[in-house]
Nucleic acid binder design. Structure first.
Length: 274
DNA sequence: GTTCAGGTCCGAT
DNA sequence: ATCGGACCTGAA
């Protein structure tokens, strides 16, 4: 038997960390809010639950997985309060930075980010989440945690091996053939996802754009969310709108403009809802 | 019923 | 190089 001991790690209030802003800002699709405000998620084959407490948050996970996965996944070595300070050199960002306090750029799995953002194109969030959830629950590995069953994100080999019938169960439409082709390339090692990590952002982007279903927007999402290349700047319809409304001067923080993008994206989509 | 959603591809200029 | 239409599906 493996060691299934469950532990809890505290994240103090002083840390920029807010589960709603963090998980609902559009960078990830698999964290579920169990209507009592507790978020559960899977990454790198591990499960965590995140609870809000009076003095911040606590992360419930298997012993060892905090050091191995969650600390990095939540990007806890970066001081986002300080980053907000840097980004606020551009006064236009101020409202978005205040509104999105607690957003961090998660360090997600490159493969998951690649597939997820291919599926996201010209699609709405609830349906994207539905497709990815189906993908994982049908073809991922079962993970038991804290009395519940979760599923890992299926490997490239697994997706490459799917029949047309299985692929159709996802109801992903024309995007299905994209992820199938990309999975075949990754499984055959024609696509080396680890190599991309070592490339500078521009070269990494051109490599990704060679893939079917990957254009500038998706490539930048993969770079930002899957490779933590913080200078990647995804421009989608929302960001285009935001940039039309307000010119943003990136001088002084070109190397982390992707973080600015996340705050602006979240703000432009949600500021009128509160 | 219609519109539209975190775009990309492909063929026609 | 740029541009418009096509593309699956199901929320809203």
């Amino acid at each position: 038997m493996k060691n299934n001991e469950i532990i809890e790690i505290r994240i103090p209030k002083t840390v920029d960390f807010d589960t709603y802003n963090l998980f609902e800002c559009g960078q990830c699709f698999r964290w579920i809010n169990n209507d009592n405000g507790v978020y559960s998620g899977v990454a790198f084959d591990k499960v965590a639950r995140v609870y809000k407490t009076d003095c911040g948050y606590r992360v419930k996970c298997n012993k060892g997985s905090y050091e191995k996965v969650w600390h990095d996944y939540f990007d806890l070595s970066l001081d986002y309060a300080e980053i907000r300070g840097v980004l606020s050199k551009e006064p236009v960002l101020k409202d978005a930075l205040d509104f999105g306090r607690g957003i961090r750029i998660l360090r997600q799995e490159p493969w998951e980010a690649l597939v997820s953002f291919i599926l996201s194109q010209c699609n709405n969030i609830p349906r994207i989440k539905g497709i990815i959830n189906t993908l994982c629950s049908l073809f991922g590995e079962k993970i038991h945690f804290d009395g519940d069953v979760f599923y890992s994100f299926p490997s490239a080999e697994r997706i490459a091996a799917l029949s047309d019938y299985e692929l159709n169960l996802l109801r992903a439409g024309y995007r299905a053939k994209y992820i199938k082709q990309v999975a075949e390339k990754a499984a055959s090692r024609e696509l080396d996802l680890e190599l991309i990590d070592k490339l500078p952002t521009d070269e990494a982007r051109s490599e990704l754009k060679k893939l079917s279903g990957v254009g500038d927007k998706v490539a930048n999402c993969v770079l930002l969310y899957g490779y933590h290349k913080l200078d990647a700047f995804p421009v989608d319809v929302w960001m285009r709108r935001a940039l039309e409304m307000q010119k943003i001067d990136f001088k002084g923080f070109e190397s982390i403009k992707g973080i600015a993008q996340q705050y602006v994206f979240h703000y432009i989509r949600n500021y009128n809802k509160s």
